[in-house]
């Protein structure tokens, strides 16, 4: 019993069946199969398996496959459209809310501590905090810009700001 031989012969089976072996290797396989009953049995069994395998009836998609798929696609398209609409209106609303909050809050800051309110570091920290509170990435830059220009305005609106102070604190903390 030459085990290595048997292993080598078994490795050739596919190409042997496909008639694609070089003739000298093919002759080796023939000779081995003629003399080794174990390999012969494996080979015959394998041929039977392959024959069954190649003749398996194939299964088909059910008749409503395409219509089900197309309605899933319709749903998908509707969802993405609605998601787009929802997202754009959501960020607009959120943007207005932040803008209002910033304008008022900067006004308060200036009132309480006019020097520190002008320190850019503090201001940007505040902006970051705001962003974390409301996920409205794209509007942030605009808001920060517009709130900077509004800062001057808010100085002249001090009285109005004092009046709305309680309200605005609620507005800002309400977003937590």
């Amino acid at each position: 019993m030459q085990n290595t031989d048997c292993a080598y012969i078994c490795e050739q089976f596919t190409e042997y069946q496909e008639n694609s072996l070089p003739s000298e290797i093919r002759a080796k396989v023939d000779a081995h199969l003629a003399s080794c009953s174990s390999c012969r049995e494996i080979f015959q069994s394998l041929s039977g398996v392959l024959e069954t395998l190649h003749n398996l009836p194939s299964v088909k998609a059910t008749t409503d496959f395409t219509s089900t798929l197309l309605s899933r696609i319709d749903t998908l398209n509707q969802e993405t459209t609605w998601q787009r609409i929802y997202h754009s209106s959501y960020s607009k609303v959120a943007g207005y809310a932040i803008a209002a909050g910033l304008i008022v809050a900067i006004g308060i800051n200036i009132l309480i501590d006019p020097i520190s309110s002008m320190k850019p570091g503090l201001k940007s920290n505040f902006a970051v905090e705001q962003t974390n509170q409301i996920q409205s990435d794209e509007s942030l830059a605009e808001i920060t810009d517009s709130s900077a220009s509004h800062a001057a305005d808010s100085l002249t609106l001090q009285n109005a700001t004092i009046n709305s102070q309680n309200q605005s604190v609620q507005l800002v903390s309400g977003k937590k």
């Binding site: 019993m1 085990n3 048997c6 292993a7 078994c10 080794c36 174990s38 390999c39 049995e41 494996i42 015959q44 069994s45 041929s47 039977g48 398996v49 024959e51 069954t52």
Partner: peptide, 16 residues
Amino acid sequence: PVDPGKGTEAIVFNSY
């Protein structure tokens, strides 16, 4: 590969 020394006799050919 299956050890050709044992077990292979038990295979029933072409009947899967």
